[in-house]
Structures are given as C-alpha cells and as structure tokens.
Computed example of a mutant assay.
Amino acid sequence: MKKWCLMVVMLCLVPLTGAAEEISAHIQKQYQDLESFSSSFVQRLTNAATKEVEVRSGTITFAKPRRIRWETTEPEKELLLVGRDVVWDYFPDENVAYKYAVEQVLQSKTMLRFISGEANLQEDFVIENQGDDAGLIKLKLIPREPETNLVLAYIWVQPTTNMLGKVLVVDFFGNGNELELSNMVMNKALDPAIFTFTPPKGVDVEDASSS
C-alpha cells in the first residue's frame, strides 16, 4: 500500500489549561459531539534516514459514522476514501486503485482511527500536557501499546479557536508525519455521495478486501 497519511485529526474544543486527563476528557467529549468537518491541509513527511521532506497538500472531509475523504492534490493526486464497508486508495496518475476492508485499516491504532472517532485518548495513550508552545497548547501522546506506525505523537491546539492546528506522528523508524490544518468548517451538511467511489473504466483494481 502506498504511503498515505495516517494521522491524528481530533477536531474539537479544549480548555487552555489543566491536567492532561482533564484536557483529554474535553477532547473526547467534543469529538463525540462532532458530526462532520472539512479542512485544508499541508502534510510534511520526513524520512529519518535521509532527512528528506515530502510536502503534500489537499483537503480532508469527515462525517459520522467514520466516513473519511482524504484528497491529496499536490504534488500528485491521491484519493483515500473510507466508506461504510470498503476503503479505497486511488492514484489517478498511475491508473490504479487499492481496495481494503474497513476493519483492515481501522483495527489498529492508526491515525485514521482518530479521524473516525474510534480511538480513546485516555485508554490508548499516556498523555502529557506540555503547555504553551509558540502560542499553541501542546500535548504529548505515548501509546500504551506502541505499533510500528505509531510510537509517539504530538498535537497542538489553537488558543484563539480551540481547534487542532497541527499534529506530528512518529513511527518506529523515527519517520515524522506532520499535518497542519486550516480553513476548517464544522458540522456542515455533506452529500453522502462524496464518500463513495467507483473505479473509472480501465483502472487497475488491486483487491485486498477479503485477505
């Protein structure tokens, strides 16, 4: 599977001060109340070995229950779509689409579980409030059961809007996945059709949904 974003997008209101447990409880409650959001993003993928940084940009749209449309527009197009039963990862320039069962993708503590609202901060992580960082509230998340693609994470919250502003996820090899969000719109009515996908004629489909 191509490297696509697995990231923390816990889009919610939080208090500016307080113990980590209190802050995480507010995050969890607000995320549970969130019905949908859309946002622009800039993503920076850092290779720990080479120090090379790949920059991506595009949009993210989420709607309950666990519907996600992650569309990268630069530097190359990619559509990652989590529907009711199937996950599609489509690369139009390569004329190929990968098909997965939803549980294959969401069964581990990946960033898509955060986006879908299925991750539990207090159960899954040891949380440390690191205070103000250049005007943002910074939380450190240490997985109670680390996995290869997630051994450490940080989130930053905008104090003026109480919304998530930036996320950094680190994998077992030290590679960094940093995400900055902007132009957020919450709880807007969305067309369910945007969370469906039919491969265009002639696209090569790699089906791993039954494996």
Rank of each mutant, 00 (worst) to 15 (best):
T110W: 00
K109Q: 04
L112T: 15
K138R: 13
T196P: 04
I137V: 13
V157A: 05
Q104H: 12
S116G: 15
E145L: 08
P143C: 01
P143S: 03
G174W: 04
E178K: 07
V167P: 03
K166W: 08
T196L: 15
L136W: 11
L181E: 11
K140C: 09
F197Q: 00
T160M: 04
P199S: 10
Y98E: 02
E103Q: 08
M186S: 14
T148M: 05
G176V: 07
Q107E: 15
L112G: 14
P146V: 00
I194K: 13
I142L: 08
P192M: 01
L141C: 05
V102M: 11
L150A: 09
P192F: 03
L141Q: 06
K109P: 01
Y100V: 06
I137H: 00
F173D: 14
V167F: 04
L179D: 00
G131H: 07
A193G: 09
Q122A: 13
N187H: 10
V169Q: 07
V105S: 06
N149C: 04
K109W: 01
A119M: 10
G176D: 07
T196A: 14
A119L: 09
I142G: 05
M163D: 11
K140G: 03
P199T: 12
G165Y: 06
R144D: 04
E103W: 01
Q122M: 15
I142E: 06
Q158P: 00
L139K: 10
Y98I: 02
I155A: 12
A119Y: 03
V185L: 12
A101C: 06
P143L: 07
T161D: 00
R144L: 07
N162P: 02
N129K: 03
T196Q: 13
K166Q: 13
N183A: 15
G131L: 02
L181A: 07
P143Y: 08
D191Y: 10
D171Y: 02
L168D: 08
D191K: 03
L141W: 08
Q107T: 10
V169K: 14
E178H: 01
G176E: 03
M186Y: 06
T196V: 14
E178Q: 05
L152F: 04
L179R: 01
F172I: 12
T148K: 02
S108F: 11
T110Q: 00
E180R: 06
V102S: 03
V169H: 01
Q158Y: 12
F197R: 03
Q122L: 07
F197Y: 10
E123V: 01
I127C: 02
A134Y: 08
D124W: 14
L141R: 02
N162F: 11
R144I: 08
Y100D: 08
I194C: 10
S116D: 01
A101G: 15
